[in-house]
Simulated scan of single mutants.
Amino acid sequence: MSLPHLVTPVADPAPMRAPVHEPLVELWRGEMVEGVHHGSAVLLDPEGRARLAIGDIEAAFYPRSAAKPMQAVAMVRAGLDVDDDLLALAAASHSGETVHLAGARRLLASAGLGEEALKNPPDLPYDPVERESWLRADGQRSRLAHNCSGKHAAMVATCVTAGWAPGRYLDPAHPLQEAIRATVEELTGQRVATVTADGCGTPLFGISLHGLARAARRLVLAPGGSAEHRVAAAMRRHPEMVAGTRRDVTTLMRKVPGLLAKDGFEAVQVAALPDGTSLALKVADGADRARLPALLALLAEGGVDPAALAPLAPADLRPATTLAPTRTDPTEKP
């Protein structure tokens, strides 16, 4: 299948170096800071200019599952055409709830395939409640229960649609993965720095935080009918498929109108608002507890009402000074 719209960008790949991170989130106990999580973050304004940059936003890093919306765009461009809830699942790190497992089965069935077509490792459901229920019912690890099974099911379905051999869809040289790489480069505006395997086995491309934020902006501003618009619309219409009923990403997309958000392992987060304001962050030590407070601070800086975000903020984790929202009231004392 020819994909003429995939154009290699001229920008160089992000440099592979040890990033110089800065404080992002502080852990408070009583009246004292007990710990500090360092990291890097970028916030782009609607025109794509860096409004806030903390740490090293240009160094290469692995976006982990925050790359899934870009992977889904590539699949739609290659011919994947499924209902919106299933397209959202293709971009998901799901909790393993019944609706997610049923959705993965539907994706496979759309291509005439079963669970045996999946190449991701067997696992238990990601959500602790679902995992406990699964174990009490003597459930065994399965490929379907893995949080990436929606993406993998969509990948094999895309292969069948495009006429590509689905058996080796994890090979970086497979036409599907070559299409995904080209799409990642196009959306981020830079060539891939390096390639490795993600935890689920799919090729994982090294890019920059700045590039990841640019990609999110491309999705929310894409014209109707484009693959980018389809993926963004599906995720926002079905946030319960992107994560799960007890997950902060789902809650935020329900609470903030038009928000597109995707988290990733090792405390990575990407998000974008309908006007093109976009952000990407990475907590250096991979501690997921610091991801949400950093995300909330960036959303507030990007124009989301802090009062709407406050119920989600952990009491003992606060943005560091580098990430504190800009003061807009000239009479307010520092």
Score class of each variant (00 low, 15 high):
L6Q: 06
T8L: 14
V20Q: 14
P23I: 09
V25D: 02
R29Q: 12
E31D: 15
A41M: 00
R49G: 04
R49W: 08
G55D: 01
F61E: 04
M70F: 06
V73S: 07
V76I: 15
D84E: 10
L87K: 08
A90I: 01
A90V: 09
G96A: 09
E97Q: 09
V99W: 05
V99T: 07
G103R: 09
R105E: 14
A111H: 03
L118K: 02
K119A: 11
N120T: 00
L124Y: 15
E130H: 07
E130S: 10
E132L: 14
R136M: 13
A137N: 13
A137H: 13
G139H: 01
S149W: 02
K151C: 15
A154V: 10
M155W: 13
V156H: 03
T161K: 07
G163K: 07
A165R: 05
P166I: 00
G167E: 10
A173P: 00
E178C: 13
A179H: 02
A182Q: 13
Q190A: 13
Q190V: 03
A193T: 13
V195M: 12
V195P: 07
C200Y: 12
R214C: 14
A216T: 12
R218G: 05
V220W: 02
A222D: 09
H229G: 09
V231A: 13
A233T: 14
A234E: 02
R246Y: 10
R247N: 06
V249C: 14
T250N: 09
L252C: 08
G264F: 05
G264M: 00
G264E: 00
A267T: 05
Q269V: 03
V270G: 05
P274A: 08
L279D: 04
R289S: 15
R289G: 09
L292T: 14
A294T: 10
L298P: 00
A300K: 01
E301M: 11
G303H: 01
L309T: 12
L312S: 14
P314T: 11
A315M: 14
L317P: 00
R327F: 00
K333P: 10
